[in-house]
């Protein structure tokens, strides 16, 4: 029964994963009203060991969400408010001259806010491209090099960047190459009427909800490891590849909208994100393998910032979500 025991253990791991996620959602839910998809998206990014870009108008609770997540996870949290005069050193850290115990002068590296488990990069598009690059390099490499010395960033490392889509003046939109480094791009929607009632009840009363840490750093790393072990059947992987191909206007799988309005399709990194996110979603639901349904659900946040519209698409106000939706509708689940 060795095999059977292994299966039982795996089942237990998956069940525990599901439980832990449930607890985490519960804690976050004490502060954040609704926004289940945004919360799951942020958690997915964290469990995939990657980063998320949150887009929404001011006042929708983006910062609160990140802060609450950090509190619930008992991880180190730092927040950087991006401004045009923000310098890379303000994020990464800088070397200063200090005195040692003997009174001698020594160079000492003072770590910046990037050295945290959860980093909130608020209004990332307000900083100059130079500063943005410094952050994005750290996001990709999970380490920082200053004065020929490399400093590793502690795992788990999770950056949540926010940007305001309305105020475009005086901003530096992220280039496509840098957008690609974000695992998900999450839209924070305006709350519904019921959700607004709850928000007002919670934030204008005397009761101040307290968030308890429910997951340790080790547990998060364990969960990240389990995610990587989730199997994917060939037909699911094939579906992901066909969807990815369909985002390219020159590909034979391309749909009508893609051909007309898309300039560049998603990169292979997009397919990685989709598949990894599908695995996480399968685990969220207590399944042992990712399915095509999972792929369908995660395609929007994983691909919407990776599919670039052409001039005609932008002029006609086409949304990338429309393109992706058409692709998902027209791509058969199985093909010879």
């Amino acid at each position: 029964m060795a095999e059977s025991g292994s299966v039982t253990a795996e089942k237990a791991d998956v069940e525990q994963f599901q439980r832990q996620i449930g607890k985490l959602r519960e804690e976050i839910g004490k502060v954040i009203v609704g926004n289940r998809e945004v919360i799951d998206g942020a958690l997915t990014c964290m469990l995939a060991g990657s980063h998320a870009l949150l887009e929404g108008v001011p006042g929708l609770g983006k910062t609160v969400l990140v802060k609450t997540m950090a509190e619930a996870l008992a991880l180190r949290f730092s927040r950087v408010q991006f401004t045009p005069d923000l310098m890379p050193a303000d994020i990464i850290g800088t070397t200063v001259i200090d005195e040692d115990a003997k009174g001698g002068k020594v160079f000492e590296f003072r770590r910046g806010p990037i050295f945290a488990n959860i980093v909130l990069a608020d209004e990332i598009n307000r900083a100059t491209p130079k500063t943005q690059s410094a952050l994005l390099e750290a996001m990709q490499e999970h380490r920082v090099t200053v004065a020929k010395t490399t400093y590793a960033i502690e795992e788990p490392f999770f950056v949540l960047a926010t940007q305001n889509p309305l105020e475009m003046e005086g901003t530096y939109p992220l280039p496509e190459a840098q957008l690609d480094r974000f695992f998900f791009k999450l839209h924070v929607p305006f709350p519904s009427r019921d959700e607004l009632h709850s928000i007002l009840d919670r934030t204008t009363g005397g009761h101040d909800p307290t968030v308890e840490p429910v997951l340790s750093r080790e547990q998060v790393i364990g969960m990240q490891r389990l995610v990587r072990e989730v199997p994917v059947a060939r037909h699911v992987q094939d579906f992901v590849i066909r969807v990815l191909e369909a985002t390219h206007p020159d590909n034979k799988e391309a749909t009508e909208l893609t051909r007309r309005f898309v300039r560049f399709g998603a990169s292979p990194r997009g397919a990685q994100s989709v598949l990894l996110a599908a695995k996480i979603r399968a685990l969220f639901e207590g399944r042992f393998a990712a399915s095509i349904d999972d792929v369908r659900k995660v395609c929007f946040p994983a691909l919407r910032h990776r599919v670039l519209l052409n001039f005609e698409g932008e002029a006609e106000g086409v949304k990338t979500d429309q393109v992706i939706e058409e692709i998902l509708n027209k791509t058969p689940e199985a093909k010879i």
Partner: peptide
Amino acid sequence: SALSFAGLPAPQRTPLMDAA
């Protein structure tokens, strides 16, 4: 997925596949 995983040789199957 079960039929797909069952079609793989036993050494290539992971415990999660068996669970699936």
